[in-house]
Computed example of a mutant assay.
Amino acid sequence: MTDTDADAGWFAGRAADEAAGRDAVDAARDRIADGEADEPRDWPALAVDAGFADSTDDYYDRLREATVAATRATVRERERADDRQLIHAVRAMDDCERTANELAERAAEWAGSLFDDAEPGIEGARAVAAREPEGELERRAVSLAERVVELAAERDALAEAIDRVAPAVAPNLAEMAGPELAARLIALAGGLEPLAKKPSGTVQVLGAEDALFAHLSGRAPSPKHGIIYTHDYVRNTRPEDRGSAARALAGKLTLAARVDHYSGERRETLHAELRERMATIRARAETGNGEDDGAGDADDAPDASEGDA
């Protein structure tokens, strides 16, 4: 709270709030969230002297009510942010896909005991869902197959939503990685801001935490890449060059996330530099050169501190 007079505090201004018809808790919440003081004071005693609270215990009860309201408002605002909604969407999509596949196995096993031509998988569930059941058990088996089809359809709808939303949330990252991979990177990092603050070496191994921890405990080699392996630049590069490709891609993805978070403007130079770097790496297959030519970006090579995901 701004220290405007000797008795100023988060509880100050109650009479003005009441006169303006403002809710006391909402007004206190705003002052707690936005205010500041030059130095601490005996706020409980000041609150009692000002008539805000009947006692110290009453002051702390009111303080708790106001701070809980302030925390809820902050969490609500954060959870409604675009990057958080993207995280919810990609996690929901994965849940739908996993559940649909699991139920499809059950539906196929059940349908196979009832129908001669039942096939496994989502497509098999579609065929069962289109049947006209005869009897209670067939109705239940067909109904289960219908649920599988609905979950698969919801998964596809969520994927389409991610394709539309991701470019608005992170235009450079979505263009460079693709909407779905961009959403997954944001989800693994916990948000666009945390992703933007991570070093490229950490971005490189996001999604490979188990392999990284196994390496740190001496049980496995260091992973070259995490979820970015699904990107064409890594997956479709010959094995001996995938480490270089993963470093180059991770470096540019990190820069893209930073630009998206801090400015939100599309930077064509990032994409052009990545294309040029990948062309150089892939040209090694034609020349037979398996060594790094040193033309990578400064941000491509992670140092030891960047290995911690």
Rank of each mutant, 00 (worst) to 15 (best):
A118C: 06
D58I: 09
A108E: 05
C96R: 13
D95H: 11
R84G: 00
L114P: 00
L144G: 03
G135M: 03
D83S: 10
A89Y: 04
L114E: 07
I87R: 14
R76G: 09
A66L: 10
D117L: 10
D117R: 12
W110Y: 03
L86N: 00
A129V: 08
A118E: 02
A69M: 07
L114S: 02
L103C: 06
P120E: 10
L114W: 11
S113Y: 10
A129N: 06
A127L: 09
D61C: 11
Y59V: 05
E109M: 08
A89K: 13
D94N: 12
G135S: 07
E132A: 10
E65I: 05
A81G: 14
E138Q: 13
P120G: 01
L63R: 05
A66Y: 07
I87N: 08
R126S: 07
R91G: 08
A141N: 05
A130C: 02
E77H: 15
E102A: 14
R76K: 14
T99D: 10
A127R: 15
R139Y: 09
I122H: 09
T99G: 02
R139I: 03
V90N: 07
E146F: 01
A145R: 14
E65A: 09
A69C: 08
V75N: 00
N101M: 14
V128D: 00
T67P: 01
A70V: 00
V128S: 13
D57Y: 01
Q85L: 14
A70Q: 01
A92H: 12
E146V: 07
A66W: 04
G135P: 00
W110K: 12
L86F: 06
W110N: 11
E119G: 02
G112W: 08
V142D: 01
A141Q: 00
D95F: 09
L63Q: 05
A130W: 04
M93V: 08
D58A: 15
D94M: 08
V142S: 07
R76H: 12
R98D: 14
A118Y: 09
Y60I: 05
R76T: 10
D82A: 07
Y59T: 06
V75D: 00
A130P: 07
E105F: 02
Q85T: 10
E65Y: 08
R91F: 04
T74M: 03
D82H: 09
A129K: 10
R140M: 09
A73E: 02
A141G: 07
D94F: 03
T74R: 13
I122K: 01
Q85D: 03
S113N: 09
R98N: 15
D58N: 15
D57L: 08
A141R: 05
A141Y: 00
H88A: 15
D82C: 02
E77M: 12
P133E: 04
L103W: 11
D117S: 01
E77I: 03
E105T: 10
T67E: 06
A125G: 02
R84V: 09
A111M: 08
T67Q: 03
A108S: 15
A92S: 15
V128A: 09
E102M: 13
A111R: 05
E65P: 03
I87E: 04
R72H: 08
E123M: 01
A127Q: 14
D61Y: 08
L86Q: 02
G121D: 08
A107R: 08
R126Q: 13
E123I: 01
P120H: 10
A111C: 04
A111Y: 04
E79Q: 04
R98A: 15
W110G: 01
G121C: 06
A92G: 15
R131Q: 12
E132G: 02
G124L: 12
D83M: 04
E146A: 14
